[in-house]
């Protein structure tokens, strides 16, 4: 029979909250890596150098179709085989950053494709170079379209951080596991982890939805 013990909840709550900080840190770091690397992937797929386009597309496909947890293991264990020691944090950030970069590259791609052709032609007729065309003309207009997808993957990366526990990153799930095995009580730690995730991801998702509506209104698109 289950018995929920509040005093146990209060006892473990400080540890869980500390771990929540780590979870947010991991999600934040991972997301920044994914944002930057995703843009690199997206631009590489638009390159005129065909082998690069092909290689990037296949890599993105491959990363997207294989489990993140296996990729985390791969990055963490394959390094040492070749003499590169990675800390769990570094390996985790590389794996999660790469995984989400491949998702975000698709989001960027859709965003860039949504910019009307006239904008490219206008930039060309003003003889702007590729760097200024992208940074001043195309990307600012691609962001409103891409925003929804980018927001979804921000929440997604947050929800996938528990997988980092498998290589020993001290985030929420890892802490809940160690609390569970220390006290032989799993009800409170696992339930609290679920509640903490809900309390962060639901408000974030609704905030993102409202921001998206605001952005869409600002550039004169219909809100969804």
């Amino acid at each position: 029979m289950f018995d929920w013990r509040w005093e146990f909840v209060w006892q473990i709550l400080p540890r869980l909250l500390e771990a929540t900080g780590n979870t947010l840190l991991a999600a934040g770091f991972g997301y920044v890596i994914a944002l930057v690397l995703g843009l690199v992937f997206a631009l590489a797929q638009r390159s005129h150098f065909k082998p690069l386009t092909f290689a990037t597309r296949e890599t993105v496909e491959f990363i997207r179709s294989t489990p993140l947890v296996l990729q985390i293991f791969f990055v963490f264990y394959v390094g040492p085989q070749f003499g590169i020691m990675l800390s769990p944090w570094t390996a985790g950030m590389i794996a999660i950053g790469l995984h989400y970069a491949s998702y975000l590259s698709e989001v960027y791609r859709a965003g860039i494709d949504s910019v009307p052709k006239g904008q490219w032609e206008a930039a060309m007729s003003l003889s702007l170079g590729p760097v200024r065309t992208y940074s001043k003309i195309i990307i600012p207009q691609a962001i409103p379209t891409a925003f929804a997808g980018m927001g979804n993957y921000l929440v997604g990366i947050f929800k996938d951080t528990p997988m980092l526990s498998v290589i020993g990153v001290a985030e929420l799930m890892h802490t809940a596991n160690s609390i569970g095995s220390e006290y032989y009580r799993f009800l409170e730690p696992y339930t609290m982890v679920g509640i903490i995730f809900l309390l962060i991801s639901l408000p974030t998702a609704s905030l993102l939805r409202r921001t998206e509506d605001r952005i869409r209104k600002k550039i004169g698109l219909r809100s969804r």
Partner: peptide, 11 residues
Amino acid sequence: RGTSLLVQLYW
């Protein structure tokens, strides 16, 4: 959709 699959699995 608000929590992780891993959390649900363990739960």
